[in-house]
Amino acid sequence: MADVAAKAGVSRALVSIVFRDQPGASQETRDRVHRVAEELGYRPDNAARLLARGHSRTLGVLLTVHQPFDADLVEAVYPEAEKLGYDVLLSANAPGRSERKAIEALLSHRCEALILLGPGGEPAELDEVGRRTVAVSVGRRVPDARLDNVHTAEAKGVRQAMDHLVELGHRRIVHVDGGRDAGSADRRKAYRAAMRRHGLTAESRVVAGRHTEEAGVEAARLLLAEESLPTAVLASNDRCALGLLMAFTRAGVDIPGQVSVVGYDDSHLSHLMPVGLTTVRQDAALLAEHAVRFVVERLEGEGLEPREAVLDPKLVVRGSTGAPRKG
C-alpha cells in the first residue's frame, strides 16, 4: 500500500480510503490509485483486514463429494452469501476424509458460521459444533442439537409420490431407503405410513440402501433375482434411482411398463437420465436462502436462538412412472 501511495503521489491513508470505497477521494484520484495498483500487481488483502477487526465475513460450507444435490445447494449458497457481504469456503466430506475433519478445516480457516449440507454426525457431535459456532443443518433435522434446521417436509414429499403411484394403479411398491443418510429415516417412516393409509400394509417392503448409485444397482439386482418384480420402486434419492434405472434397463426391464421408478431431490442429475425421472423436488435455491439468512442473522443479531424452516416439496412427474402393465 505504501508503494502504491508513493507512486500515485498520495498518502497511504488516501489509498486505504480508495480501496475501502469510502468517501474522501475524487474520481480522478481513485482512477490513478487503481491504475498504479494494477501496474504494481497490488491487491488489498481483505481477509487480513477483516480478521484484524475480529471478523472474517466467511461462511464455511460442508458438503459431500459426489452428491449432486449438494452441488445444487452450493451453487445457490454463493449468490445469497455475496448478497449479504459474505464469502464462502468449501470443505468436503469424502472417502478417507471424515466429516469431523472437514468441519475442523472450516473452523481453522476462521469461518464465522457453518452451513452443513446433510450432515451425518451424531446429534451430540453436531450439538458440540453448534455450541462452538453458529451453524445450520440443511436437509437433515437435528432437533437435539444447537443448530438452525432447514429442510423439506419429507413426509409430505413421500406422500405425494406414493399417492401418485397408487392413483396410477400400483400396489406392489417397494422402498429402497437411504440407510443413515440425511432425510432417510423420515422418508422410510413416511413410506410405511402411506402404505398403511392406502390399505397396502401387506405389500409394504423396505430394501436397505444408501443415497448412492451403487445402492440402487444392488437393490435392482436383489429384486431381479426374485420370482417377480414389484410394479413400482420409490428410491431414497435421485442417485439411488439412477442406479435402479441403469440396472433394470441393462436387464431388459421396461421402464415404466414393467417397473415405475420415483426419486427424491430433483437434482440436476434427474434431467440427465435416459428416461426422465419422476422425483420429489426440493427447492435448492430456497433452502440455501433460508440457511444463509439464518446464520447471518444469528451472527449479526445478539441472543437469537436457533430456528427451523420447513419447506414444501413438489412432485415432478416425468417418464419413469406410468400405469402398471395388465397381466
Rank of each mutant, 00 (worst) to 15 (best):
Gly9Met: 03
Arg12Tyr: 14
Leu14Met: 12
Val15Asp: 08
Ile17Phe: 15
Asp21Ala: 14
Pro23Glu: 12
Glu28Ile: 10
Glu28Trp: 10
Asp31Pro: 13
Asp31Asn: 13
Arg32Ala: 14
Val33Glu: 02
His34Gly: 13
Glu38Phe: 12
Gly41Phe: 08
Arg43Thr: 14
Arg43Pro: 12
Asn46Pro: 14
Arg49Pro: 08
Leu51Ile: 05
Ala52Gly: 15
Ala52Val: 13
Arg53Trp: 06
Ser56His: 03
Leu59Ser: 06
Thr64Ser: 12
His66Asp: 14
Ala71Asn: 10
Asp72Leu: 04
Glu75Asn: 10
Pro79Leu: 10
Glu80Pro: 06
Tyr86Gly: 10
Tyr86Lys: 10
Ser91Tyr: 00
Ala92Val: 03
Asn93Val: 11
Gly96Val: 04
Ser98Leu: 08
Ala102Trp: 03
Ala105Lys: 13
His109Arg: 14
His109Leu: 11
Ala113His: 02
Leu117Phe: 08
Gly118Phe: 07
Gly118Tyr: 06
Pro119Tyr: 05
Glu125Pro: 05
Glu125Ile: 01
Leu126Tyr: 01
Leu126Val: 01
Glu128Cys: 07
Gly130Met: 05
Arg132Ser: 04
Thr133Lys: 01
Val134Lys: 02
Val138Ser: 09
Val138Gln: 09
Gly139Ser: 04
Arg140Val: 07
Pro143Ala: 07
Arg146Thr: 09
Val150Pro: 04
Glu154Lys: 11
Asp163Trp: 04
Val166Arg: 00
Glu167Lys: 12
Arg171Lys: 07
Arg171Pro: 01
Val174Trp: 03
Val176Gln: 05
Ser184Ala: 09
Arg192Glu: 11
Ala193Phe: 06
Ala193Val: 09
Met195Thr: 02
Arg197Asn: 10
His198Ala: 04
Thr201Gly: 15
Ala202Val: 07
Ala202Tyr: 04
Val207Met: 06
Val207Tyr: 07
Ala208Arg: 12
Gly209Ile: 02
Thr212Ile: 01
Thr212Lys: 01
Gly216His: 00
Ala220Lys: 04
Leu223Asp: 06
Ala225Cys: 12
Glu227Lys: 14
Leu229Gly: 04
Thr231Trp: 09
Val233His: 06
Ala235Pro: 05
Arg239Gly: 07
Leu242Ser: 15
Leu244Trp: 08
Leu244Ala: 09
Leu245Pro: 06
Met246Asp: 15
Thr249Cys: 08
Thr249Trp: 10
Ala251Met: 01
Gly252Ala: 06
Ile255Asp: 02
Ser260Ile: 05
Val261Pro: 01
Asp265Arg: 05
Asp265Pro: 01
Ser267Phe: 00
Leu269Trp: 00
His271Leu: 11
Leu272Phe: 12
Val275Thr: 12
Gly276Tyr: 02
Gly276His: 02
Thr279Lys: 03
Thr279Glu: 04
Arg281Met: 07
Leu286Ile: 14
Arg293Thr: 15
Val295Cys: 02
Glu297Leu: 09
Glu308Ala: 10
Val310Cys: 11
Asp312Gly: 09
Leu315Phe: 02
Val316Ile: 13
Gly322His: 08
Arg325Leu: 15
